[in-house]
């Protein structure tokens, strides 16, 4: 169990800065997810914590102990790689035992720990197979098992599910959540570009953009009160509607955000009105695209009972307490609607 502290961590490759002054505190035993688009620096940040990349400046500590100069094996970490990275010439048992063997554990100890991990992951019948004889899901379990046997203080996952197909991804996601509950002693850091994965797994999420931390918070916090336009756009599926120009001006902001699920059909009190240009029926939900004259059509999520067809003119209104207003810097405006414009200026300067 380790508490991880990143203080002013920066990383540059040559002249390009990949990570800029990141400050982050990861609590002991917590599952922290790094999420962001590709190129946001989330994998680099993980590799810095792992020790596979050197930190350009700043300090990384585990439980107050500096890790900057420690090689990965001295940090008490283990890592699950995106491509599994199993040793192709070793069977499952040897794959899992390799790290312990190098750490000079006793053969009995190795045997016991490998068997325990294998049982926990239900791969104990595969111990004498080679990686190429396993399915993708089984390989991923072995990779996780290899990480577990070392009994690390910190578990690192680098997009571990992206090579699996959709149904396996859900199953393995559950598995990882289960491991997180069973292994209360380990802090976990999980990197993904998939915000659904982030929302479902995380205790807390760290949203990265361009090598900087956009926001850190629980999934609920990120969903309900995004700290920036970027987070608002990135979290939530389907993505939040963003209205600009006159639509936003009515609400005294630069950009007005409203999630599709927070719009209701209300012919009597319609805020926006437009023709339905496209509908998507997902069974449980019905998505309709309204042309209300904004840059991109307004997406509305309806329950399947409601019947709307293409070409129909529909009026909608937002749920008032779910409106997100952003200023020209993409920062949220917290003041209530109707307050003097001066408040907008105040937030800017802050």
């Amino acid at each position: 169990m380790a508490q991880i502290q990143l203080a002013n961590i920066s990383k540059h490759f040559g002249k390009t800065e990949v990570i800029r002054e990141v400050n982050l505190n990861i609590k002991a035993g917590e599952l922290m997810v790094f999420v962001g688009p590709s190129g946001s620096g989330k994998s680099t940040l993980l590799r810095l914590i792992c020790g596979l990349e050197e930190i350009s400046s700043g300090e990384l500590t585990f439980d107050g102990e500096s890790m900057n100069n420690k090689v990965p094996s001295e940090r008490g970490i283990s890592m699950v790689f995106q491509s599994y990275a199993l040793y192709p010439h070793m069977d499952v048992y040897k794959n899992m035992a390799f790290g312990l063997k190098l750490a000079k554990s006793s053969p009995e100890d190795i045997r016991e720990r490998v068997m325990n991990a294998a049982k926990m992951l239900q791969i104990d019948h595969l111990l004498d197979r080679l990686p190429k004889q396993l399915s993708g899901g089984q390989r991923q379990r072995v990779a996780i098992g290899r990480a577990i046997v070392r009994n690390p203080r910190v578990f690192l996952f680098d997009e571990p599910l992206s090579n699996l197909d959709a149904s396996l991804r859900v199953a393995t996601r559950l598995e990882i959540a289960k491991i997180h509950h069973e292994m209360k002693s380990a802090t976990m850091i999980y990197v993904t570009h998939d915000q659904v994965e982030a929302m479902t797994l995380a205790d807390r999420i760290c949203v990265l953009n361009n090598g900087e931390v956009e926001q850190v918070g629980t999934p609920e916090e990120l969903y309900h009160s995004p700290n920036s336009l970027f987070v608002a756009k990135f979290i939530g599926s389907p993505a939040m509607n963003l209205l600009e120009g006159d639509f936003a001006k009515d609400y005294q902001c630069q950009t007005l955000g409203i999630r599709p699920e927070h719009l209701v059909i209300d012919p009597n009190e319609a805020t926006w009105q437009g023709a339905v240009i496209h509908t998507e029926n997902l069974g449980s939900d019905l998505y309709i695209y309204l042309d209300i004259g904004s840059d991109s059509p307004l997406l509305v999520r309806l329950s399947d009972q409601q019947k709307v067809s293409k070409g129909e003119i529909v009026g909608v209104r937002p749920k008032w307490d779910h409106l997100h207003r952003f200023d020209q810097h993409g920062k949220p405006i917290s003041a209530p609607i109707g307050a003097e414009p001066s408040t907008v200026l105040e937030t800017q300067s802050a």
Partner: peptide
Amino acid sequence: LPVEIEEAAIVDGATPWVIITQVFLPL
């Protein structure tokens, strides 16, 4: 040879010599 295998070995505590003799050579 894939980089990730080498990195996995590094995380497992392998020195360059061990990486060559026990991981890369068999491959």
